[in-house]
């Protein structure tokens, strides 16, 4: 799940970015309104974590702007000001949820899952494809009675593919989801994860589109 984090505090921004990645999200961090505008315009994010006070303006303004443009992107406001008035103002400006600082990562993750679930009209944290139910909260899958465990990176790759079944994700796009910040990406890691996934789910579950990337096999085909 691609999440845009708009936070100007370096330590918190880094924490959100790493923490959400560890929780199975694919976050992207920007630290100003200008960068956030740019990112929202460019990329297909599923939710935005928005700080209220940014160096070049207010998160609220950014949010109003977003809603005026007709965007229904789920937005979770993150702010030190979490009094009743502040929450009401934030929600009225178009925020879908509100979380006061400091907060705990599991709560932020759960709220983000709830936001995207609602946005996609789902009742559960489950992505379904070809008989596999992928639990985005537990980062595990179920097929029939079989429980399948995934490593975090396997899950990230699989979830990225299952969010938009049928569309092709390039290796670079998958790498970006896996490594927003960290160590140098080893060039074959995506292949390694896909290899592991195929071992767990059957070799036909994920198809390689030569020269383009990966996609899920059509339903019934795997």
């Amino acid at each position: 799940m691609r999440i845009l984090i708009v936070e100007d505090d370096a330590v918190l921004g880094d924490g959100l970015s790493v923490g959400l990645r560890l929780s199975g999200f694919s976050p992207e961090l920007v630290d100003s309104c200008a960068d956030a505008r740019h990112a929202i315009g460019m990329e297909g994010f599923e939710a935005v974590v928005l700080d209220l006070m940014l160096p070049d303006g207010s998160g609220l303004e950014l949010l109003r702007e977003l809603r005026q443009r007709g965007s229904d992107m789920p937005v979770l406001m993150l702010t030190a000001r979490d009094g009743l008035d502040d929450r009401v103002t934030g929600l009225d400006a178009g925020a879908d949820d509100y979380l006061g600082k400091p907060f705990e990562l599991p709560e932020l993750s759960a709220r983000l899952r709830a936001l995207t679930r609602r946005a996609q009209g789902r009742a559960e944290n489950l992505l379904h494809w070809n008989g596999l139910a992928l639990d985005t909260a537990k980062m595990s899958g179920q097929r029939g009675a079989e429980e399948i465990a995934f490593s975090r990176r396997e899950f990230t790759v699989l979830a990225a593919l299952m969010e938009r079944p049928g569309s092709i994700l390039s290796k670079a796009a998958l790498e970006e989801r896996l490594y927003g910040w960290q160590e140098d990406v080893e060039s074959n890691t995506v292949e390694v994860h896909v290899h592991h996934l195929r071992a767990k789910l059957g070799s036909g579950f994920i198809q390689t589109v030569r020269g383009a990337g990966y996609r899920l096999a059509p339903e019934g085909a795997a």
Binding site: D9, L12, A80
Partner: peptide
């Protein structure tokens, strides 16, 4: 002042949680 301190505190909290759940030493 209290609000200003909440942001760095949130950063500390988040990083502490990451340190606790980190899958590897580097993280």
């Amino acid at each position: 002042a209290a609000h200003e301190l909440k942001t760095p505190l949130a950063g500390l909290q988040t990083q502490a949680e990451i340190a606790r759940m980190a899958p590897d030493t580097a993280t």
